[in-house]
């Protein structure tokens, strides 16, 4: 279990993160979500013991990250930001080097490295020099080195950044397959990633945690309203006032009046009530033409924007 309490990191007088606290239980996959510069990488570096916090402390598996640094590092797999690798080394040689540093015993090293290369799908490039590999493969090598030594905890800083969509899906699948027996923290600023791979999301903005929940709960909690978007042929004001009379409707906005008396309306309602039927009826009963109607629930994307942008 990872326990961060009141982490603050200041560079000069500027705080990169402030009072960041969270607990991560064994077996969880937690997504650290935030815009660039929110303090994700700083937090990760503190978690791995690369830099100390100005105040606060981190415990991983009951051990303090700074007092028992070596012991913690043994249990930790870390992929730093931008996937730094020794570009001049061959994949297998590199992984064996990492295995030696991770104190994997000499007789088990070859086997262990082969197994991890298979898991990460890089056994076909084992003899290649890392700098000749594509971005996707480099990323896999980065994840592979984090997996060396079977760490209980994996910390991945933006594991899918810069990859093409196919590679992103592959890396996601890989992370999901690892989730079975590991506690994983991954940071990202890509939203679908979180809803697809993580059991919990921590949203961080300007160095502070602004929300923390499962992806589903976040959606539910923050999107108390559902929106229905309508395009109707008819007089705007009149339609708007008629629709307001329907029970369950919270408010009606006229989005824009298009040419030739078309009106776009946004109708907000409670989330758990579906008012589309009533809306359609109301429009038709008044002899207006209903051209389009769709329901929108606030997605993670909007929640994220809502939480991380200042009004």
């Amino acid at each position: 279990m990872i326990k961060a309490s009141k982490l603050t990191k200041k560079y000069g007088t500027k705080a990169a993160i402030q009072d960041v606290s969270f607990n991560i239980d064994k077996g969880e996959v937690v997504g650290f979500l935030g815009p660039n510069g929110a303090g994700k990488t700083t937090t990760m570096r503190i978690l791995t013991g690369y830099i100390p916090p100005t105040s606060g402390k981190v415990e991983i598996g009951g051990l303090d990250v700074f007092d028992d640094s070596l012991e913690v590092r043994r249990k930790l797999g870390y992929l730093p930001e931008n996937t730094p690798l020794y570009l001049d080394m061959d994949v297998e040689v590199f992984l064996k080097y990492i295995a030696a540093l991770k104190k994997v015993s000499t007789d088990k090293r070859s086997n262990h490295v082969s197994k991890i290369m298979k898991v990460c799908g890089i056994d076909n490039v084992r003899q290649s020099t890392i700098k000749t590999l594509s971005k996707g493969y480099k990323q896999r090598v980065g994840i592979a080195q984090a997996l060396i030594g079977n760490p209980e905890y994996l910390i991945l800083d933006e594991p899918t950044i810069g990859l093409d969509p196919k590679q992103i899906i592959e890396i996601r699948e890989l992370i999901k397959s690892l989730a079975e027996d590991k506690t994983i923290i991954l940071s990202t600023h890509i939203l679908p990633e979180v809803s697809m791979t993580c059991s919990r999301v921590i949203i961080i903005a300007e160095g502070k945690i602004v929300a923390e929940d499962t992806p589903n709960n976040l959606e539910n909690r923050l999107s108390g309203v559902a929106k229905v978007l309508l395009t109707v042929k008819g007089p705007g004001e009149e339609i708007s006032s008629k629709l307001k009379e329907i029970s369950g409707v919270k408010r009606v906005n006229i989005e824009k009046t298009q040419a030739s008396d078309l009106v776009d309306l946004e109708v907000a309602s409670q989330k758990d009530v579906d008012i589309r039927g009533q809306l359609a009826q109301a429009v038709v009963q008044n002899n207006w033409d209903l051209l389009e109607m769709r329901r929108e629930v606030l997605g993670l994307e909007e929640i994220f924007l809502k939480l991380t942008t200042k009004e």
Binding site: R73, P80, N82, P84, L85, Y86, L87, L101, K102
Partner: peptide
């Protein structure tokens, strides 16, 4: 420059 210092220093080595 390559950022590998972070890779190295987060391994269990003094």
């Amino acid at each position: 420059k390559m950022g590998t210092l972070e890779l190295l220093m987060t391994k269990p080595v003094r």
